[in-house]
Design a protein around this nucleic acid. Sequence first.
DNA 1: AAAATAGTGTCTATGAGACACTATAAA
DNA 2: TTTATAGTGTCTCATAGACACTATTTT
Lengths: 255, 255
Amino acid sequence: MKLNGFITPDGYTSDIAVFTITSEPNGDHKPPLKKLKIMLIKRSESDHEGNPNMEAGKWALPGGFVRSTETSLQAAEHKLEEETGVSGLRIKHFGTYDSPNRDKRGWIISNAHYVIAKEEALRNRKTTYDASDIQLFTINEAICLPLAFDHRQIIDDALWFIKKDMALTTLAQHFLPEEFVLSELQGVLLTILDDSSISTDAAFFRKAPKLPFIEAVTENGQLKKSNRYSKTPAQLYRFTDFQPMVSIYNQKLKG
Amino acid sequence: MKLNGFITPDGYTSDIAVFTITSEPNGDHKPPLKKLKIMLIKRSESDHEGNPNMEAGKWALPGGFVRSTETSLQAAEHKLEEETGVSGLRIKHFGTYDSPNRDKRGWIISNAHYVIAKEEALRNRKTTYDASDIQLFTINEAICLPLAFDHRQIIDDALWFIKKDMALTTLAQHFLPEEFVLSELQGVLLTILDDSSISTDAAFFRKAPKLPFIEAVTENGQLKKSNRYSKTPAQLYRFTDFQPMVSIYNQKLKG
DNA sequence: AAAATAGTGTCTATGAGACACTATAAA
DNA sequence: TTTATAGTGTCTCATAGACACTATTTT
C-alpha cells in the first residue's frame, strides 16, 4: 500500500533481549555466584512451510513479525510467551532499528525490547519451529557468537540500557525474590554495576538498610530473618513503592 | 507487500517535539525570565495535491512519512530542517507509537523524537504546504489545544523524557550559550526541575562551580567575566566533556 | 547612598569511607 | 574452638543547608 506517494515498510518486527541472573550454589551457608545471562535462539534452517530461513544457523534474539492488530510491545509479550512459556513480566521498549539495509529481505523495521526474567521462568524454555536451539549465554559468550542481522548492536544497546536502569531505577527487584537478604541485593548489583560503595561490605551493609526504597520485613511484630545464605540469620528486606529520582546537580563534587 | 503471511504497516512516520526556552528581558542587569516552550504546527485543510487533510485544523507535532532509504531519525532531521530551517541539532528518539487504531488512515507507526532548539534558530521558522500556522506554546497552553492523533500523549511522554534527561545528563547545555553565567544555568534548570538546591541562591552558587562537568572560562590567564545580567561582573562557565553518572544506590538516605 | 546581583564566611548536622571490632550459628 | 557471614563502633573528613555577611557596579 502506498500512502501519499510514500513507500511503506516491508515488515515490522519485535525483538526481545531476555536477561536473567543465574545463581550457582557455592557451598552451604554461602551466597551463590551470580552471573548475568542473555537468552538466544538458534535460527532454524527452514521455516514452518519448509522454505529456507534467512540467516539460518546463526544465533538471534527471540522475536518476530508484529500483527496489524497489536503494538510491538504486545507482540513482544506474546512472542516471549510462545517461545519461553513466560508471561506477566514487565517488558521495556528501548530502541528502534530501521536502517534500510539491516535486513536483506527488504525494509524491515525492528523494535527492540528487553525483559528481566527469573531464572526459574526460563528453566522450562522450549524450542519452536523457528528455533533449532535455545540457550543462556553470559554476555562475553554472546558477543563471540555468530549473530543474525544487527543483533550484535541491539544486544550492546540493551546492555547499556540495563546498566542505566539498574543504576537509576529499582530494576534490581526483578532479579530478586520478594523478600531478600542484603547480600543477595549486593550480588545482583555487582553483576552489572561496578562501584566501591556496593562492593565494600561495610559500606553496603551500613547504607543499604537506609535506602528510601527498601524496608525491613517484619512478621508478628518481629524482624523477619533468614539464614538461607549464612549461619547468622540475616534481616529480610523488600522494595517499597518509592520511586527514587536522582540528579547530576545533586551529586558528589570534584575535589 | 506481504511477508511470511503477515500484513505490513500502512505507513511509517517520524514526529518531532521541538522544545526551546524563551528568554524575556526583565529589565537591565537582571536575568531574563525563562520559559519552556514547544513548537507546534496547525495542520492545513488540504495537502499539496488539494486533497482534504486528515485531522485538518488541529495542532500537531511537525513530522511526516519516512522514506524507504532513511531511518526515522534521518527523516526527523530533514523534516525539521524543511519546516524550521534548523539543522545540526542533536535529535533524540524516545518512543514508538504503533497502536493499531491511532490513525484512521490505517496502521501507521510513528517514531517520536525530541530536540532542543535555540530560541534564535526558531525565529525564522516558516509554514509549509502542510502547515497553515506554526507557533510556540508553553506546555500549559499546548495541552489545552485541540491536538491531532495521539500527539497529546506523545507530548506528555516527551516532557517526561526531557525532565529525566535534564536531571541526568548535561542536556542543559543545549539551552545555553557556549559561555554562560551561573544564573543562566539556574534559570534553565528551574524551567524544568524543581529542587531547593537549585532554587536556593546560596546553595546553587556555592555548589555549581564545583560540579565535575562545568569549568570556569579563562582568557589570557584571567578569569573571564560578564555583566550581561548583573552590575557585578559574574564568572563565565562552560560545560566540559565529562559525562556524569549517578546511581540511586549512592544517594541521600532516609532519616 | 541605594539597590541589585554575585558571591563568601561560618556554623551545625549528617553522611562517606576506612578499619577494627562484635554477634551468631554450624560443623 | 574454628570459620564464615552479618553486621556495628568509632574515627576522620567532606558536604548540605541555613543565615548572615561582603563585593561590585549602576543609577
